[in-house]
Amino acid sequence: MSNDTLTIAGKAYSSRLLVGTGKYKDFAQTRAAINASGADIVTVAIRRTNIGQNSGEASLLDFLPPSEFTYLPNTAGCYSADDAVRTLRLARELLDDHRLVKLEVLGDPQSLYPNVVETLAAAKTLVKEGFEVMVYTSDDPIIAQQLEDIGCAAIMPLASLIGSGMGILNPWNLQLILERVKVPVIVDAGVGTASDAAIAMELGCQGVLMNTAIAAAQDPVLMASAMKKAVEAGREAYLAGRMPRKFYSATPSSPTSGMIGR
């Protein structure tokens, strides 16, 4: 399995679990959980600096050095293509001409459901400007295909609403996307526990991106470890190819001859 890598925009990553860095108790817990997850790619948000903040205060980058991880700056909280593009241009400058980004343009603050019209517009601009766009989207196979056609580096459909922990609500739609899209499909949002991540991988997804499922667990570090195993187990099961389902008949696992008393 060691050569089974996730390739995004021409670069190979050993872990298929991508994790967020939000909602942890402190930076030390963030770091411990991310270590346990084995993730190579970590998402970060771009926010206004606090004016007048203590200049000696630690920052996320001190705990997660960009030399050790691949940063995936996101556009969380953006509700228009324009805001998303501006945010990622700032991220590119902030991270020394870093191109790999997570685009998400949201529709409303209650559902955080993607606004696919704005997402498509932002993706066009970003691809034209040389960004490698991993794009959060709905589980609509037509939109997924259009985002791939624009040139996105990965399609990241939701499993259920961001931060909901509701798991994979529509595996059939994910399957439709997987059948059409050639770039990596990574489930982003909605995973609640390890089995959800395993199901996503068994469907054939190339990876899973999560934050709250780990950060909001009672023991985030232990859950991070569980997610690592779930993603690996689901991937191996996908590659192994599951047995066919037999709906109306059983098949014994033990030999049917040589029984005593017959």
Binding site: V44, S59, Y71, L90, N211
Partner: peptide
């Protein structure tokens, strides 16, 4: 002006 930093996020 907008002055930004990287912070934790998902």
């Amino acid at each position: 002006l907008e002055i930004v930093v990287a912070v934790g996020g998902g």
